[in-house]
Design a protein around this nucleic acid. Structure first.
Lengths: 104, 104
DNA sequence: AGATCGGTTCGAACGAAATGGAACTATCTC
DNA sequence: GAGATAGTTCCATTTCGTTCGAACCGATCT
């Protein structure tokens, strides 16, 4: 099996809108995406608004975002850097991320 | 209790993005919204793509859309007319509906 | 009034997703 | 190599959502 360090990332062309919408429909996940809009973060850094969230739970939230093609999660030394796949999402779903993040 | 004929509709100002995103994250519900984008429909008319869907199921799908502020459901004689609350949604979440419906 | 039509609500069964602790893996430091 | 660090995965539990039949409701028609 492939190394654990490189997690599987779907091609954005293969993800359905409904998957993206579902991933963003959870407040905790949406908050993470908002934080990532400003730039990549390590796992430890993101989720500032949810300080005492168990790491297994956070990891699972991130997995949903990753499998929906919203986020990229790459190893970097002994931690991981998470980034928003903004350009790819914009190409596939023009205006979506903008409008979701732009409210309020 | 209030009359059954007039169903409760949230003020769009009170609905959360996450509620809207969740409601749209189901393929059957999203399909209904696509159909409604062209104009109001009666319950019987919408769901063309899902012909043999039990009416209780369809009613429930519609309830989720209604409670998310996406759709208006008003009595009209002995049937009901369902319409997309497009203007209100556009005002509250600019570009959202457009980008969700615009993909593909 | 009674029957029918179009739709909603109730309730139960089922399925899917969230949660979080414990075990595991990889990397870095000493 | 041993220990600490930063995360992921596994598993069990609980919570939440879906599905659909049956009962119900209001409007219409005869």
């Amino acid at each position: 099996m492939a190394t654990l360090t490189h997690l599987p990332h779907p091609d954005v062309a293969d993800v359905e809108v409904t998957d993206v919408l579902f991933a963003l429909s959870d407040p905790a996940r949406l908050q993470i995406v908002r934080e990532l809009a400003a730039g990549p973060l390590t796992m430890a850094e993101c989720g500032v608004t949810n300080p005492d969230l168990p790491k297994s739970t956070k990891s699972h939230l991130m997995k949903v975002l990753r499998e929906a093609g919203i986020v990229r999660n790459e190893p970097d030394g002994r931690r991981r850097v998470v980034s928003l796949r903004k350009d790819e999402l914009d190409a596939r779903f023009p205006g979506l991320i903008e409008s979701v993040l732009g409210e309020r």
